[in-house]
Write a protein that binds this DNA or RNA. Structure first.
Length: 357
DNA sequence: ATCATTTGACCATG
DNA sequence: CATGGTCAAATGAT
């Protein structure tokens, strides 16, 4: 069996290496003079490599798991109007029996994203979902309040996804976004479109000029910017509920496009976002000096929820909260200068913003 | 008028 | 009891 593992890690390595090389090539083709097709081609190749690598991980890592990763083939329509998670639509009956306080079997994960308001790039990007703010609270020991959002389709579609947004104390340009629950609403498919659009826009922006569309109103960005999945971030999975056995590092992301219909931009952005996620969570990167939390683990599971797709991530209950503590902040270090030393180390500072900005 | 945000109060939890 | 999370009335925006 060791052989198998070996073989797989070899495959993995070679795929990753290939991806690396391709990425390098892509970098060289980032000049406006380079043809769009070339870039597209390279991107596709990269994605392909990653997919292979990932699927190899999938097969190798968790055999005894309840599910492979074929869930993405399921059409989202299956839960169009009834969230599979909210059995008894508890939304009305909040006062009901609190007796069984199921710790909300909702997955929870945190992302940290840097807002670069200087460049006008990290504008008011959404994450493709529409949220409604329902509260704000000052948090003890924190300099900035925490905002609470819920999916605006909660009423219509019973979507229970929520998120919390809070400015990082150390670096106010960083927002910590904690998502709870997945979207059961039909917005999910829009995500990719939105992201793709965003990317395109950025490209355009980059090419032409930058217009100071947004100045720093200091407070304003927070509510809006909040969370573009592909933004700088680390993903910290928290409530993974690994009470029992493994269920731990859980790879489940679409290796297949959801609707194989409009597979152009969608895949593109989707895959990019995902790889970004994964990279983010895999990178022990820079242990922020800010975090006084002595040790951080260097390996965090890539818990891909992919927004409404992977509804299999079943969470039992337990507080695994601090296992995975991703590096909190992107340091002020010269990453900004595209320090893409794409070496196959876990530090891989993969950040599409750097590519597209 | 409708919809979203703000904000203090209320509630659950540890 | 302190804290974090949510509700809902008031307020603001469109």
């Amino acid at each position: 069996m060791e052989k198998t593992i070996h073989w797989e890690s070899k495959t993995l390595l070679s795929e990753l290496n290939q991806g690396k090389e391709l990425a390098k090539q892509l970098m060289n083709h980032l000049h406006p003079s380079s043809s769009h097709e070339t870039r597209e081609f390279l991107v596709e190749k990269i994605l392909s490599s990653y997919e292979k690598a990932l699927s190899s991980l999938n097969w190798g890592a968790h055999v005894g798991e309840p599910k492979p990763s074929s869930n993405l083939l399921e059409s989202p329509s299956s839960f169009a109007n009834g969230s599979p998670w909210s059995e008894g639509s508890d939304q009305d009956s909040k006062h009901k029996d609190v007796s069984k306080k199921r710790k909300t079997l909702m997955p929870r994960w945190t992302e940290q994203m840097k807002v670069r308001s200087g460049t006008g790039l990290e504008g008011p990007l959404g994450d493709g979902y529409s949220w409604r703010k329902y509260g704000q609270k000052d948090i003890l020991g924190a300099n900035f309040p925490r905002s609470y959002y819920r999916c605006s389709h909660r009423h219509g579609q019973g979507c229970l996804a929520t998120k919390q947004v809070q400015k990082s104390e150390e670096d106010p340009t960083i927002f910590e976004v904690t998502y709870k629950g997945r979207h059961t609403c039909s917005q999910a498919s829009r995500l990719n479109m939105a992201a793709a659009t965003v990317i395109e826009e950025r490209l355009k922006e980059k090419k032409s000029h930058f217009h100071p569309q947004q100045r720093q109103h200091e407070e304003k960005p927070l509510e809006e910017i909040v969370s573009m999945p592909g933004a700088g971030l680390m993903v910290k999975t928290e409530d993974l509920d690994t009470r029992e056995d493994d269920v731990f590092p859980y790879f489940s992301f679409p290796t297949t496009p959801i609707g194989s219909e409009n597979v152009d931009n969608n895949i593109f952005s989707e895959a990019i976002l995902e790889s970004n996620f994964c990279m983010g969570s895999l990178s022990p990167t820079f242990i922020s000096p800010a975090t006084s939390d002595s040790n951080m683990f260097s390996l965090s599971p890539c818990h891909m929820n992919s927004y409404g797709l992977g509804h299999n991530v079943q969470t039992s209950e337990s507080d695994l909260t601090d296992i995975i503590s991703a590096p909190t902040s992107v340091p002020n270090s010269p990453i900004g200068n595209l320090d893409l030393s794409l070496d196959l180390d876990p530090d891989f500072p993969f950040d599409i913003r750097e590519f597209f900005s």
